[in-house]
Simulated assay, not measured.
Amino acid sequence: MATELDSRTVECHLAEEMGSISLARQATRDALAEWGYRGRGEDVLLVVSELVTNALVHASGGPTLRLTGGSGHIRVEVGDCGEGEPEPRAPGPADGWGLHVIAKLCTSWGTSRHEGGKVVWCELAAPLALAAPTG
């Protein structure tokens, strides 16, 4: 599931099924604990849930989750095979809260295109206590 790329990056390739939301949340919890995250973990988990859910509902193929912890921020990226750009809808129970939640909780967010799809990314302020890389 999760592959540690360095002391501050985790990447997960998720199946195209709603159960992947729970797996993404657990990988995020594990990364935040390992990195010594001292902020509002619930906010990071909510952002991950929203982005992975959007990828599963509005795109095709299993999404990829990438978390990067840096000095003062956490970057969340969710890649999918969808061609469409995410569009905020009217917030509420019918269409969900999705991108409105992302906009409220994050310092910035956007999309980038890549061959075969897109990545929706966002950044949150993050007090981290990253350990020095070993080896």
Rank of each mutant, 00 (worst) to 15 (best):
R66Y: 05
V76E: 12
G72F: 08
E85C: 01
C81A: 14
E85L: 13
G62Y: 11
R75Y: 08
V76Y: 11
V76P: 10
G79H: 06
E83H: 05
V78S: 12
T64E: 15
H73G: 02
R89Q: 11
V101Q: 06
E77D: 15
V76I: 15
I74N: 09
L99G: 00
G84C: 00
D80E: 06
I102E: 08
H73E: 13
P93Y: 03
R89G: 03
E77Q: 14
V76C: 08
H73V: 02
H73I: 01
E77I: 00
P86C: 02
A103C: 03
E77R: 12
G70Q: 14
V76S: 11
D80K: 02
V78Q: 13
R89K: 06
G70Y: 11
T68C: 10
G84S: 09
G72N: 10
S60Y: 09
E87A: 09
P86W: 06
R66M: 10
H100N: 11
R66I: 06
C81W: 00
G69D: 04
D95W: 05
H73A: 07
E85Y: 04
C81T: 06
G98A: 08
R89W: 04
H100F: 05
G79N: 00
S71D: 15
G84E: 13
E83T: 09
G96Y: 09
E77G: 10
G84D: 11
G92A: 01
G62H: 11
T68M: 12
W97L: 14
A94W: 08
I102Y: 08
G82K: 05
V101D: 09
G79D: 07
E83A: 12
L99K: 00
L65W: 07
G79R: 11
G84K: 03
I102S: 06
I102C: 04
G84F: 00
E87I: 07
V76L: 10
V101K: 03
G62Q: 11
G62W: 11
D80Y: 02
L65A: 10
G70E: 15
